[in-house]
Design a protein around this nucleic acid. Structure first.
Lengths: 156, 156
DNA sequence: GACACAGGGTTCACTACTTGAACTGAGTCC
DNA sequence: GGACTCAGTTCAAGTAGTGAACCCTGTGTC
């Protein structure tokens, strides 16, 4: 009776959910973006149980979002760094950031943290657009459909 | 020894994680976007245990992402619909979709599903940009910082 | 009125996952 | 030799997820 797995489902959202549905995982990734690399750094920053942190890092390495490398020979010390796949995940965290910021401080308060440009210091506010048109996504105009249907519709 | 809660943490990612870190929740929302409204529809579409579905819908209603309304008096029947807060969550799912599509079918295969414009049928490919500049987000140029620090830096 | 059926759940026994604290082990510093 | 650091592992207790069965209200049908 294992927890239902989504990682073989045909839907990209399902597969992604399988990964970040593990409790703590998005926060481990957030800390990695913020510069954490060593086991102890993640552990102290988050207050996460050590066994859970070890399991999460292992999975992120297995899935190819992070890599574990030795950065010191004597004594042997390891660090965890984001790979290209892991860095690409930033868009998901940015979307979570923006939605949380907009909707989870409802009594007129503002979150104490913000995203800012590293150089100019100006606030960054992420939004989702369509890559080809550059226009903001509008749920009402989008639907999920099968690619085969799409090919058929295009006459292929 | 309850699961650690993130819903009061100062970081928007942490608060959002608290919500979608519940197993199944992003898939319930996906189905809601795809048009599901009734308990039975969600249950059949996902194959989710009924008790878990009831708990997830309750929470989504509590948090204000969905509302439960009676759509028929005799017999009494209820449906769950997305609120504005819930619809705004689409950007997070779109980010998950895009990342999953790009990185979770690694052996050259394509996911069998796609996002498409409801009318033209053209594929939609979501990307994150900065609202003011319109440029794609680049992790390396962004950092997380405190708003108070920002005010101080701006001389306010 | 008796029976079957549908929607929308609840209850229950069984596991898998989280938690917090303690422990391990390699290697350095003094 | 003793204290200390990093990077984990082990373990008991408790919480959450799973699958199946059950419940209740109300319809429709004989």
């Amino acid at each position: 009776m294992r927890r239902t797995r989504f990682d073989e489902w045909p839907c990209p959202i399902a597969r992604t959910t399988d990964l970040i549905g593990d409790w703590w995982t998005p926060l481990v990734l957030r800390d990695a973006f913020a510069g954490c690399r060593r086991f102890e750094q993640f552990q102290e920053s988050l207050g996460i149980p050590r066994a859970v942190l070890a399991a999460r890092l292992d999975r992120l390495v297995d899935e190819g979002l992070m890599e574990r490398r030795r950065y010191e020979e004597h004594p042997p010390r390891y660090e965890y760094r984001l790979t290209a796949k892991g860095r690409a995940f930033w868009d998901v965290l940015a979307a979570m950031w923006r939605w949380g910021e907009d909707w989870l401080w409802e009594d007129g308060a503002e979150p104490p943290l913000m995203l800012a440009d590293r150089e100019t210091g100006r606030e960054v506010r992420p939004v989702m657009v369509d890559e080809t048109t550059g226009e903001r996504l509008d749920v009402r105009t989008i639907r999920i459909r099968s690619r085969r249907g799409a090919r058929r519709a295009a006459g292929a």
